[in-house]
Design a protein around this nucleic acid. Structure first.
Lengths: 131, 131
DNA sequence: TTGTTAATTGTTATAATATAACATTAAATA
DNA sequence: TATTTAATGTTATATTATAACAATTAACAA
């Protein structure tokens, strides 16, 4: 799904998330797109749901925040991994090929039919480690 | 930390979570322990925070639910992995040694000092696959 | 082009999840 | 036993998310 096929509100919200370039919360998004005519939470959550569904953004579950996908720009994201600094709150998307390959293998061994996973690492980023 | 060293409310809430044996939400816990004298959300959330901290329970982030730890009974849990059935909502804790070893190695390679991770797989469990 | 269906939007209200703040009590320990 | 740390009780409120329904727009088959 290309950006051009997104609806008006979806585009407004994706543009904003891409612009801020860090995880952002739904009500913060709402606050920041009100000048564009988006007035109520359901308008934001609907767009977020859709954008997550098509892989344009991810939800950082441990933070109830949303961030633009950095990996591929037009592919449903079934495999997400993030590192989260517990000090400065910085979040980066991890796209380690070996990791996703390993997790895929793991899925195949298990008794379940998996179709998605999310991995969140917590710790101290480089900058905060040396403080 | 042993169960005996838990406070009154912590014990009540851990007992309840262990009894139900599936992920349960904070307000559902509250509802079910009111007969034991726990009356308000902060009492529940405080106990939950502590129990998570000492590894007696885990939070399933994608569901805002809490579940008793199945792995070791008295150890801080820094490495959690769950499989979640998208149909029947069943959640199981995964304790695959190779997986945790792999993720540990992965941590060491990365630029961050990790101290915790949480992995959530989504899919269909055996029962729901054959329906 | 029109009629029909599906998707999206706008809107109000409210549900569900979680914490702030502060007074009180109990437990641990110097 | 004095002190301080942890836990509790309580009220209020903040934060996150969805229900419900009417109105509008887009997609597309007849």
């Amino acid at each position: 799904m290309q950006k051009e096929t997104l609806s008006k509100n979806q585009k407004i919200i994706l543009d904003y998330i891409e612009k801020v370039n860090e995880p952002i919360k739904a009500y913060s998004i709402l606050h920041n797109v009100q000048k564009k005519g988006i007035k109520a939470p359901p308008q934001v959550y609907r767009a977020l749901d859709k954008l997550v569904e098509i892989g344009k953004i991810h939800k950082i579950e441990s933070k109830n925040a949303f961030v633009a996908c950095k990996n591929s720009n037009c592919q449903i994201s079934k495999a997400t991994a993030f590192s989260i600094c517990e000090s400065c709150e910085e979040v980066s998307e991890i796209s380690d090929h070996k990791l996703s390959k390993y997790l895929k293998t793991f899925q195949e061994k298990a008794g379940m039919k998996f179709n998605k996973y999310n991995l969140e690492f917590f710790g101290l980023c480089k900058k905060c480690s040396i403080k």
